[in-house]
Design a protein around this nucleic acid. Structure first.
Lengths: 132, 132
DNA sequence: GTAACACTTAAAGTTAACTTTAAGTCAATA
DNA sequence: TATTGACTTAAAGTTAACTTTAAGTGTTAC
């Protein structure tokens, strides 16, 4: 019942290049993946969970190095839960600040766009006035 | 009444290294800055506005290249306002997607932290039970 | 006059996160 | 049996955004 995938299939499933999957493994974000008789990697649910986790964190810009620190603690066992929790709390704070920054830039940008819009509308009106 | 600053003072004011200010100029994000008799750059309100603009966009991760495209259109004059507006609208869309992604990661992270918290509390309770 | 200081330029170096290349292994297929 | 396709590794290359270095100029302080 355990469904396993090749590196190519895993690559498709997550839309991550095979080279990147190998790179994540060689960087220690993904534990050494089991190989079949031909020496090819066999990806299982365990890897899928890890890849999902990495993808989530990377999508928020969390660095490979930070993810590595977390994964290393994970390997050290249950007693590292307080540290892992702290890392996530720290990252969370950073992300919340980033979200705020992003919201500010979004507001700024909306204002600037609105100014341009006003300019264009004004210009349009002047054009029409001239045509009468 | 026009207050001007040296590169070192401008660097302090915006908390951007002097090397980065020169780099922005050489990349065309900042127009060639006027030099005084000794050949030193003299920063004025015009530059401050531009630096503020760049800092805002960079803080949201907008690339130097994208900012350059915008600045180049700016130089081409008023008739590029529709294109400039479109660039900002496109960037805005990207940022809004990023903000959404970020919010999802934040939620995910909060869940994971809560799980850890639950584990820790449970552990604590077990400890107490054993002590009775 | 010479040392210190604040700048200048051009070019080389750095870092993160990949990506590409080169050379080789293995199993199935013509 | 030879070619094809899917993989393997190790190492080199790429890109963005800086940062550092090296060599030089001009003004002020001793």
């Amino acid at each position: 019942m355990e469904s396993t995938l090749t590196i190519a299939q895993t690559s498709k499933k997550f839309n991550i290049p095979t080279s990147t999957l190998r790179y994540y493994e060689s960087s220690g974000l993904i534990d050494p993946v089991q190989k079949n008789e031909s020496g090819h990697r066999v990806y299982t649910e365990k890897e899928f969970r890890r890849i999902r986790f990495i993808k989530t964190l990377r999508s928020a810009g969390i660095t490979i190095e930070q993810i590595k620190i977390y994964v290393d603690l994970f390997h050290l066992g249950e007693h590292t839960i307080p540290q892992r929790k702290q890392i996530l709390i720290d990252q969370l704070k950073i992300l919340e600040m980033q979200a705020e920054t992003l919201q500010n830039v979004i507001s700024d940008l909306k204002d600037t766009i609105q100014n341009y819009e006003d300019t264009l509308v004004k210009r349009e009106l002047e054009q029409r006035r001239k045509q009468i």
